[in-house]
Design a binder for these strands. Structure first.
Length: 555
RNA sequence: GCGCCCAUGGCUCAGCUGGAUAGAGCGCCAGACUACGAAUCUGGAUGUCGCAAGUUCGAAUCUUGCUGGGCGCACCA
């Protein structure tokens, strides 16, 4: 609809210029059309006259008047227009236009809101990517949902999206994992162990050690320690990764690919890449270590890629990883990180630019940490001691839908309070139920109609002009806005816009429901309203589907 | 010390990339079921958009400076 108004304006202006009514106007930014905050200012408004006023040095209201008098509206969608304030042109859309969108929604059904701004371009969204040294905790959960929904949004917008989990399984943290298991294993045979600072203490380590003891006995007490650690690392990493996958599955998060960091080192891949970057002058040696000239691309300082001891850094692997991503044909790459990694951004952007890629092709979404509460009181968490609330515990306690919805209610880069007591409360403090309840309520009404022998109407069976209550018009306008909202969310990679939209839509519906009977003696009105509800249902489902939140028929 | 992010009613947050009188939810107060689901609805109070300049027709939004909070500043990942 916004686009239609913009087209009317651009056609009109071109027409006026060619007829000499307006001077030549340049509009590099295109034509802006927006929804005014105040409904008295119409359904849409444009500031075009004010924008061009400065350029052609004329009174904006005068320009607006010329435009308004010569509007080209072939679709005949305008009820009226007005010029207001310093030079706004306000547009009022005919009710019949909103009523017609019902037909579009019904016809498109689950396609309603689907876009093709992506042009089937290959996009990769990489997220979670926790190294498999322990179960996912609440902090990972937010990133998991944001990544999942961003991927859904892009898919819905017409991109060819793959979701990937990068397994950091090559660093010495994994080695510490193997060591931790070994120490617990020895403890099981009665040895007293001073547990080192950098080892993992969670109970899951003991379980893994216990399993190894049960299956393979005591043979690792005497074998070569380094080999044993390597072996235990593999076993533990595998077990933990499987657990992570299980948790993600129950959270509704699925990946197309799990990519192992170790893959990068095969056939000296990392070394060769560093070599070639050195030849191109991006990397230099100071005699002991290799440095990447990230300052070329506005990083604060150059960064080490190969340490004094000869080991490549995480950064070195990450350049190789992103090179690999581009080599797989992805035109746009979305990385989702914890906000505490923000300092790493200039480094990675330097890396991909050295690879010849455009900085804008790598989008990085920072997800702020979650502040976990229980009934308003902070829940103490410490990774070191192994005391943290796991994703599994959250799922068991509050359920998938409430957890996902709560993580999507704020912008990603804003801190989020997650209160376990509130999230599991089935009350008005918990927005997920507000939306789901609206959906269930509609299902219930449609079912009631069927039980009374009223067939669900099709568009051709109804007179949409009967839908003229204020709440009905509001519902139709809101639904007409759905594709625009989705497009905005997809372009900005901001999933929270959907939850805000859903809350508003549910609000309009609940209010409508309380004021008006859908099923009544008036057959024609009943049919029209039932049809309206069918379309509302479609919008709820499509939006909830993108969020990965259930749309229950009863609660 | 340097860099990034944040600051909007009592609380938690939106604000569509510069628009018109700044909005929701929670909490608080007062009301609405013999009516399609009261997990709902209706009405009410609450604001120097952290402070100060600047940019222009117009600023919560952009610039600069300050204040206060978070996070980074590794040859960790």
């Amino acid at each position: 609809m916004k686009n239609k108004i913009a087209r009317i304006l651009s056609d009109t202006i071109r027409d006026c210029i060619s007829r000499g009514l307006l001077p030549e106007i340049n509009l590099p930014g295109g034509i802006e059309v927006e929804v005014p905050g105040n409904p008295e200012h119409g359904d849409y408004a444009s500031n075009i006259a004010m924008i061009s006023a400065a350029q052609v040095k004329q009174n904006p209201r005068k320009i607006a008047a010329v435009i308004e008098a010569n509007l080209v509206d072939p679709g005949n969608i305008l009820e009226k227009t007005q010029i207001a304030g310093p030079g706004f042109i306000n547009f009022y859309i005919k009710n019949s236009v909103w009523q017609n969108t019902l037909q579009i929604i019904q016809e498109k059904n689950e396609e309603y809101g689907r876009l093709d701004i992506g042009g089937a371009q290959k996009v990769q969204v990489e997220f979670v990517s926790a190294n498999p040294t322990g179960p996912l905790h609440i902090g990972h959960a937010r990133g998991a949902v944001v990544g999942d929904v961003v991927a859904n949004l892009l898919k819905n917008a017409g991109y060819a999206v793959d979701k990937e989990y990068y397994i950091n399984d090559a660093g010495n943290q994994m080695n510490n994992l193997g060591k931790s298991v070994l120490y617990r294993y020895r403890e099981l045979f009665g040895e007293k162990i001073e547990f080192p600072e950098n080892c993992y203490r969670g109970d899951y380590i003991k379980d893994i050690a216990g399993d190894i003891m049960k299956k393979e006995g005591n043979k690792y007490l005497i074998s070569d320690e380094e080999a044993t650690i390597r072996y235990f690392t593999g076993v533990a990493g595998g077990v933990i990764l499987e657990g992570i996958k299980d948790d993600l599955r129950d959270f509704g998060v699925f990946f197309d690919n799990y990519f192992s960091e170790r893959e990068l080192y095969k056939d000296d891949g990392v070394a060769e890449l560093l070599d070639s970057l050195q030849k191109q002058g991006f990397i230099y040696s100071d005699g002991e270590t290799l440095w990447f000239k990230t300052t070329m691309y506005n990083d604060e300082k150059d960064r080490v890629v190969v340490r004094k001891n000869g080991d490549p850094t995480y950064f070195a692997a990450d350049i190789a990883y992103h090179k690999n991503k581009y080599a797989r044909g992805y035109k746009m790459i979305v990385d989702i990180w914890g906000a505490d990694h923000h300092g790493y951004m200039p480094r990675l952007w330097s890396g991909i630019q050295a690879l010849g890629q455009d900085k804008s092709s790598l989008k990085i979404i920072l997800v702020q940490l979650v502040n976990l509460l229980r009934a308003g009181e902070p829940v103490a968490m410490s990774t070191r001691s192994g005391e943290f609330v796991t994703l599994r515990e959250v799922l068991d306690e509050v359920g998938k839908d409430a957890a996902r919805y709560n993580f999507l209610m704020r912008r990603s880069d804003s801190h989020l309070d997650f209160d376990l007591e509130v999230a599991k409360k089935q009350s008005n403090e918990n927005p997920v139920y507000y939306v789901q309840y609206a959906h269930a309520r509609i299902c219930s009404i449609l079912k009631m109609a069927e039980e009374r022998g009223i067939a669900l109407p099709e568009y051709k069976d109804i007179d949409p002009a009967l839908l003229r209550e204020q709440e009905e018009i509001n519902l139709m306008k809101m639904m007409a806005k759905y594709p625009e909202m989705i497009e905005g969310a997809a372009r900005t990679l901001e999933p929270h816009r959907i939850t805000f939209y859903l809350n508003e839509l549910a609000g309009i519906f609940h209010s409508y429901y309380n004021k008006n009977k859908v099923i009544s003696e008036n057959e024609k009105l009943t049919a029209a309203r039932l049809f309206l509800l069918r379309t509302v249902l479609i919008v709820f489902r499509n939006a909830l589907n993108i969020l990965g939140v259930g749309a229950p028929e009863k609660m």
